[in-house]
Design a protein around this nucleic acid. Structure first.
Length: 458
RNA sequence: GCGUCGGUGCCCGAGUGGUCCAAGGGGACGGCCUGCAAAGCCGUAAAGCCGCGGGUUCAAAUCCCGCCCGGCGCUCCA
């Protein structure tokens, strides 16, 4: 039985998909107005690991990850750079996708853009007006009427009155609204801003409405999982939910939120300007080390990411790679069907329990140790153990060693040097053998002697 | 202030009533293997008891109460 912690109930609940064997997921992607940072990476790994695992479990998963390509920040950035909103969003979406690719994030089945769904948003807003869940303020826009929805505040566990008390704690209140909690569904046109026509005059989409339109359009009015970074819980997801429920849709069955990445005890975010860009980090570290680091912390736990966290992860990845090379040399590249069932069971149990990736990773390392021991002993269980490590790693998106078929330009030279060294060793010319090893080392090549021969890696 | 999550070894980080459970990774030390390394395996040390103080229980890191500290949210944010 799979269980997830549902942000709405704040409890771990058994996961039961709406349609047998199928899972629909909507994950909030980026608003593209700046370089992607480590927080985006953690969130992306959130849906990546969730989706990969559900697929490994045999579910047919439909994953939607949106791109918000029109909002206040994009408009501001466009003005600042002297570019159009479209240019800004294209630049940063491209940057986002490049880094997602480097991280090995799976491609969503759909990547809808807000600007392609303005008509749909208008329909949702019209429905909300019809149902008396919203009101028009001439010259200002259309607002959602929070008082019309009993369920408002459920996701953040607050009564509307409590929310009213703290409203404006950080942001100035807007006099156009009947209630400080109300929020804009449609913003009337202002000079120098992109606009679309609507029944309420020219303007642009307000808050959160894009996600409702896109999720419902692509996944239907009732879907399984809605996810995103925990900072989106309020107001974004609360308001999205309000819009969808207000429009009479059941909406998401489970809400899953990943915790924040922090830097020296503070949230890493664009507004604080303390973020490390993903590009910077991925230039310096093996993307798999980052993935491993994220996997080693439960998704609902805040995590600190810095060199002293990444360095050990790099070492751990090297250990897995070394193991994979060894397994391949023994003829086990993971393609065989034999599995070590106790490890597979332990892995499944860990992951079924609210995606406990730290425990799942522990299972993998335990299995690596067993596999190495079996290889040392030339034990027949080695094959199943090796296959299991490779498969379970892949289920979490970790591809070990050069299994992706990367070729090294100097491979021939290196093989030749290794052959020379082997000859020298056979002749007990250890000084000569060590000279060759030093030469390889100078090329950045590390060699490992084993019972089955010598392997090397960069 | 209100809501919420958390404070575990040298570091990161699992574990949320009972094999005296403190997983796993990194680091350290010793042994085996090796011509020597590297890798691997085996073992050891390291948390005087898992923020502090009470309590519940035959039994708590794990439940309850209070306190201290920190993160996040309270309409930009993954």
């Amino acid at each position: 039985m799979i269980e997830f912690t549902d942000s709405l109930t704040r409890t771990k609940r058994p996961f039961e998909p709406i349609r047998d064997g199928e899972v629909s997921i909507y994950w909030c992607g980026p608003t593209v107005y700046d370089d992607p940072h480590l927080g985006h990476a953690r969130s992306a790994l959130g849906f990546d690991i969730l989706t990969r695992y559900l697929r490994w479990r045999g579910f047919e998963v439909t994953l939607v990850r949106n791109v918000t390509d029109i909002d206040d920040n994009i408009i501001a950035r466009a003005a600042q750079r002297g570019l159009s909103e479209t240019e800004i969003s294209q630049i940063y979406e491209a940057a986002y996708l490049t880094e997602m690719d480097r991280l090995g994030i799976i491609s969503p089945d759909h990547s809808p853009h807000a600007t392609d769904y303005v008509d749909e948003m208008i329909k949702v807003i019209a429905t909300l007006l019809d149902r008396n869940m919203a009101y028009v303020v001439e010259g200002s826009g259309v607002y959602f009427d929070v008082s019309a929805l009993d369920a408002y505040g459920a996701l953040v566990n607050r009564d509307p009155d409590e929310l009213r008390e703290s409203a404006g704690a950080r942001v100035a209140l807007d006099d156009d609204k009947a209630d400080p909690l109300d929020f804009a569904l449609w913003k009337a046109a202002k000079p120098d801003e992109p606009t679309w026509d609507s029944p309420w005059g020219p303007g642009r989409p307000g808050w959160h409405i894009e996600c409702v339109s896109m999720s419902v359009n692509l996944l239907g009015p009732h879907f399984d999982i809605h996810g995103g970074g925990d900072d989106l819980t309020f107001p974004h997801h609360e308001n999205e939910r309000a819009e969808a429920l207000g429009a009479g849709q059941p909406f998401a069955n489970y809400w899953i939120h990943n915790a924040m990445v922090q830097v020296e005890g503070e949230k890493m975010s664009k507004s604080l300007g303390n973020f490390t860009t993903l590009a910077e980090m991925l230039d310096a570290y093996d993307p798999r080390a980052f993935r491993l680091l994220v996997l080693q912390t439960h998704y609902r736990r805040t995590m600190e990411i810095n060199a002293s966290a990444l360095d050990p992860a790099v070492t751990a990845i090297e250990r897995l790679d070394t193991f994979a090379r060894r397994a391949r040399l023994a003829g086990f590249d993971g393609s065989g069907i034999a599995r070590h069932e106790p490890s597979v069971d332990a892995f499944r149990n860990a992951m079924d329990d609210d995606l406990s990736t730290p425990a799942a990773i522990a299972v993998i390392f335990d299995t690596v140790r067993l596999a190495n021991a079996a290889l040392d002993a030339d034990d027949p269980t080695a094959e199943a153990l090796c296959n299991t490590v490779i498969e379970l790693s892949a289920a979490l998106g970790l591809v070990l060693d050069g299994a992706d078929g990367a070729v090294d330009d100097d491979a021939d030279t290196i093989d030749d040097l290794i052959a020379q060294r082997s000859t020298a060793r056979e002749q007990r010319d250890f000084a000569g053998a060590d000279r060759i090893r030093d030469e390889l080392s100078a090329m950045g090549v590390t060699i490992e002697d084993g019972a089955m021969g010598t392997t090397w890696h960069r």
